[in-house]
Nucleic acid binder design. Sequence first.
DNA 1: GTCTATATGCAGATAGAC
DNA 2: GTCTATCTGCATATAGAC
Lengths: 204, 204
Amino acid sequence: MQTPQPKVSFKEQMHQAREDAILQSTCRLLSDKAYDAMTMDDVAQAVGIAKASLYKHFCSKEELCCAAMVQILGRLRTFLDSLAPEQPPLDKLQALVRWSLQRLLAHEMPLLPSRNSSLRAVLMANPSYLEGLVAVSDQVGQWITQAQAQGVLDPSLPPLVVLYTLYARACDPVVGFLKEGGQHSDEEIIALVLRTCFQGLAAR
Amino acid sequence: MQTPQPKVSFKEQMHQAREDAILQSTCRLLSDKAYDAMTMDDVAQAVGIAKASLYKHFCSKEELCCAAMVQILGRLRTFLDSLAPEQPPLDKLQALVRWSLQRLLAHEMPLLPSRNSSLRAVLMANPSYLEGLVAVSDQVGQWITQAQAQGVLDPSLPPLVVLYTLYARACDPVVGFLKEGGQHSDEEIIALVLRTCFQGLAAR
DNA sequence: GTCTATATGCAGATAGAC
DNA sequence: GTCTATCTGCATATAGAC
């Protein structure tokens, strides 16, 4: 008898699966429209449940979107942890941006909160999100200083500037522009954006 | 008697001045919050007039915001036209980004419509805005190909990628992040963002 | 053209049956 | 927990006096 609470566990699993579906739909919607423009009706319709049911899982729109962003952040941390320790730090930084761009192209990640997003204020007031953000920033910050010490990343740039730049490029709107143009494959777009980010526009 | 219609002209001037004030307030507000989050009440309060008066000048929120963006675009074109013809094209491109970043820091320019902004759809349906955007893009496109021909701008990058990247950097959220940090002056921030844009993050 | 007051519609959130 | 139906508030836009 190795199933002490089979029924409870099953229900919990269903519950969790439903919540994951809600979060996934939320992420998709947030990647297409701004936080203010996304409605709870949109989410309910995308998931295929009634709006009231949504509120049984998440007590407010703010909480729902925070949870979605926290989930994304968790996936990012999992990815960062999966990188081989012996990999050069610069490669890890590029892998970080590449991962984000892939999510962006797959419509799995909201274009992140720049200053004029009301979602940003909500997130910055959310302890779970902040905690995750700090953890990622610490990790990435280490790689930045290591890459600078190796001389492969411009050592004259303040690490914080590099960090912010990486975050900004991780949701670079150029990706969307190029995708709309339809001239390039997803992989080409990622390669181009990575190149402009790390090599710059000027000739070398 | 060189004043044929003095009274009409004066009234027109007042009218124009009032509209300019409205547009300026709109730009300021749009630089702080997203299109969807900005309300006509915000604008009315910022200008110091009643909301109904606003609708005497602009018949809808969409039209108002379009007019604000068209105004910005006009100023950009004026600036671009003012650049000395003998200036190297790469310098002109940098001047373009610098000008935008200055506006951004002065809260005079909305963080531009990336894909997830509902304002973007509105703008793309507006002939005046599109016309201005095409004119600027043609001008900038010429400079890009010239700079590539001179070998100072990476010739292996598709010109459209460079163009989109310049547009994206012109409202780089990194500016806001660094400004919030309070560690750098406005000029330092501009210099840093320009450097990451043209020189990249990797060491040279 | 400017105002106060109001109409209209929509979105966040809730009530209550099942 | 899920649903339908509803409450509430707010934002766009308008009416109508001055």
